[in-house]
């Protein structure tokens, strides 16, 4: 279960975050914070660093500079005597178990059944009993509309079904923060709606904090409390979805939205 912490402390806080791949600077002096239960969508052209932000929170990428705090605690580095010091792997793991991620390519484990995919980490990482994890997995499969697929092989499922299992797998860890990285980009158009409805349902029924990267603007408008527009590794505009989508103040945002929304 997520540890209850001070509601005033942001769940995620980026302080002067920098990320570069070699000479290519992806994020520059990025500062933002996400409150508990807040659902934030990151939009912007590809290469603007949105996915990198999710990957930094998931510790899939190394931070080049600055600090990331989760529940007020440093995720990768802390400042000590004016120096940047890496946190211990134990400290990092403690924070990381509060974070879940759903990937564009699902990344289910092909050597396990659907059920085994879902119960693996709850049993071995969180120390749940097999009975407890299995019961939870079945209710999650019900929630994502796949109650009869528990014993199937992941690769025998369609892309949309695989992604729904991946959502169940992430939720089985009871994450405080859920990172959604273009979760519908690899899906056939006709199943995108199903997957988004499941996520809308998760948003409506839980208090999980969500950080979302998506090109589905209507989904972003429906579920998010805040939209952040990225360009060139910086936030150029942020605000409530109604404001950003209907009356963007930045010209770059206007251009981007008219490009992705067509003439809407």
């Amino acid at each position: 279960m997520p540890t209850p912490t001070d509601p005033e402390v942001p769940v995620i806080e980026f302080v002067d975050v920098q990320k570069s791949f070699g000479d290519n600077i992806v994020l520059k002096d990025l500062n933002f914070s996400v409150r508990r239960g807040e659902r934030v969508t990151l939009i912007g052209p590809s290469g603007s660093g949105k996915t990198t932000i999710l990957r930094l929170v998931m510790t899939l990428e190394e931070l080049t500079g600055g600090y990331i705090f989760v529940d007020g605690e440093p995720l990768t580095h802390r400042e000590k005597d004016g120096k940047r010091v890496a946190v211990s792997s134990k400290e990092q793991k403690k924070l990381r178990t509060r974070i879940g991620m759903v990937f564009q390519q699902f990344n289910l484990f092909p050597n396990m059944t659907v059920l085994e995919n879902i119960i693996e980490a709850p049993i071995y990482v969180l120390g749940q009993s097999k009975a407890e994890a299995t019961a939870k997995a079945h209710s999650l499969l019900e929630q994502v509309g796949l109650p009869d697929k528990a014993d199937q092989h992941p690769l025998s499922l369609s892309g949309g079904q695989q992604q729904r299992v991946a959502i169940a797998r992430a939720l089985a860890m009871d994450p405080e923060i859920l990172l959604l990285d273009e979760v519908t980009s690899a899906l056939d158009p006709e199943v995108v709606g199903d997957v988004l409805n499941i996520l809308r349902n998760v948003a409506d029924t839980t208090n999980v904090t969500m950080l979302i990267v998506t090109h589905e603007m209507s989904f972003a408008r429906d579920v998010s409390h805040k939209v952040m527009m990225f360009d060139g590794g910086r936030v150029i505009e942020e605000g409530a979805p109604e404001k950003i989508f209907s009356d963007p103040s930045h010209q770059r945002t206007q251009q981007f939205l008219s490009a992705v929304l067509g003439d809407a």
């Binding site: 899939l60 879940g100 990937f103 990344n107 980490a121 990482v125 860890m173």
Partner: peptide, 18 residues
């Protein structure tokens, strides 16, 4: 082994041995 598989193990906080 596909990098997505490694990344999924990180996202599920699995230890190296696990």
């Amino acid at each position: 082994v596909a990098s997505g598989q490694w990344e999924a193990t990180v996202a599920l906080s699995m230890s190296w041995t696990h």
